[in-house]
Measured scan of single mutants.
Amino acid sequence: MFYPNSPQTSPQLTQIPYGQQYAMMQRQIQQPYHPFATTEPQARLYPYHYQGPIQQEQGGFITQQSTAASPQYVQMRVTPVDQSIMSGYPNQTANGSSSSSFNYNIHPQQQQQQQQQQQQLRHHAMPVGSVPLQDDRYRKQLIVNYLAPDVTSTDLHELFSRFGELDGARIIYDKQTNMSKGYGFVYFCHAEDAKEAVERMSGYEFHGKWLKVGYSTNPLNIVPSNSSPYVHAGSRGAAG
């Protein structure tokens, strides 16, 4: 039997160049792979992502010199942007860049009308829970959420009447099932009393439920100042 490094198959040491006398086997001759043993700084910083320098080929596509990437890492192929796409944008300079302001050559009167329309939209648009300043009635009506099913309009009136005089209180019921929808409205005579009720009743436990109280901004629920107070009856038909 002959071994790869046996004296019968191995040459004389004098015939082997210096430095390879003890590297006779194939696994010894093959050098191990060192990912950080390279002179390129990109490979030292990113050993798993770097795959060699990027070269520009004919046709405008950018390719990489090395083989496919590892399945664990996804390499994105980048193509140059066609400058003709950006030619339609206004205020574009000769080098292809555009300024931040756009001039669509709008007539001054049209621009003024658009600004007025935007101001009107901001004036009428009102986020949930906010209180408008032009109508004091919005500051007097509250919406009470997360009410228990057994709470009546009379219970709601008695709960909030300790903060001040009320114009009314009612629970909203479903017309088909005649069941409470879980929320109601309270109408105060003074805005200061309503503000105190919002601050003190939010998070209050009532009939096993934690109440959420806020201003009601729905104009359909506003009680006119010259109208008669609501009837605080315990029956659902009268309260709904």
Rank of each mutant, 00 (worst) to 15 (best):
Y3E: 11
P4H: 12
N5I: 03
P7I: 06
Q12Y: 05
Q12C: 11
L13E: 11
I16Q: 14
P17G: 06
Y18K: 15
Q21W: 04
Q21M: 03
Y22W: 12
Y22F: 10
Y22Q: 11
Y22K: 15
Y22C: 10
Y22A: 12
M24R: 15
M25A: 14
M25V: 10
Q26D: 03
Q26W: 06
Q26E: 10
I29C: 15
I29H: 11
I29S: 10
Q30H: 07
Q31Y: 05
Q31N: 07
Y33E: 07
H34M: 04
H34N: 11
P35L: 03
F36I: 12
A37W: 03
A37C: 08
T38N: 10
P41G: 12
P41T: 08
Q42W: 03
R44Y: 02
L45S: 14
L45Q: 14
P47A: 04
I54V: 11
Q55N: 09
E57W: 11
Q58P: 07
G59S: 07
G59L: 04
G60V: 05
F61P: 12
I62F: 06
Q64H: 10
Q65G: 08
Q65V: 04
S66F: 06
T67R: 15
A69F: 05
A69M: 05
P71Y: 04
Q72K: 15
Y73D: 12
V74D: 09
Q75S: 10
M76Q: 14
R77S: 05
V78C: 14
T79K: 14
Q83F: 04
S84R: 11
S84L: 04
S84P: 08
I85F: 10
M86Y: 10
S87H: 08
G88R: 12
G88L: 07
Y89K: 14
N91D: 09
Q92D: 05
Q92H: 10
Q92V: 06
Q92E: 04
Q92S: 09
T93Q: 11
T93P: 09
A94E: 05
A94W: 08
G96T: 08
S100W: 07
S101Y: 10
F102T: 10
N103C: 05
N103E: 06
Y104C: 09
Y104M: 05
Y104W: 05
N105E: 05
N105I: 04
I106K: 13
Q109N: 08
Q111A: 05
Q112F: 11
Q115K: 12
Q115L: 10
Q116Y: 12
Q117M: 10
Q117H: 13
Q118E: 10
Q118F: 11
Q118P: 07
Q118C: 08
Q119H: 11
R122D: 03
H123C: 08
H123Y: 12
H124P: 11
H124G: 07
A125I: 09
A125P: 05
M126C: 11
M126K: 10
P127H: 14
V128M: 05
V128N: 09
G129D: 04
S130D: 08
L133N: 07
Q134D: 07
Q134P: 12
R137P: 06
Y138S: 03
Y138G: 06
Y138T: 03
Y138R: 04
R139E: 04
R139Y: 14
K140M: 03
K140L: 02
Q141K: 02
Q141C: 00
V144C: 09
Y146F: 07
L147I: 09
P149V: 07
V151M: 05
S153A: 04
D155M: 05
L156F: 02
L156R: 00
H157F: 14
E158P: 00
E158D: 14
E158N: 13
F160C: 02
F160E: 00
S161V: 11
S161G: 13
F163K: 01
L166H: 00
L166E: 00
G168D: 02
A169H: 00
I172F: 00
I172C: 00
Y173C: 13
K175T: 06
Q176K: 08
Q176A: 08
T177D: 03
T177V: 06
M179R: 10
S180H: 09
S180T: 12
S180E: 01
G182E: 01
G182W: 00
G184Y: 00
V186S: 01
F188K: 00
C189I: 03
A191L: 03
E192F: 13
D193K: 14
D193I: 02
A194S: 03
A194F: 00
A197W: 00
A197D: 02
V198T: 06
R200N: 04
S202T: 14
G203D: 03
Y204Q: 11
E205N: 03
F206L: 08
G208S: 08
G208E: 03
G208A: 08
W210V: 02
W210Y: 05
K212D: 01
V213N: 01
V213Q: 00
V213S: 01
G214L: 02
Y215S: 01
Y215F: 04
Y215P: 02
S216Y: 08
S216D: 00
P219K: 00
L220S: 03
I222G: 02
I222W: 04
V223G: 03
P224H: 12
S227C: 13
S227A: 08
S227F: 14
P229Y: 14
Y230P: 08
V231D: 05
H232K: 09
S235M: 15
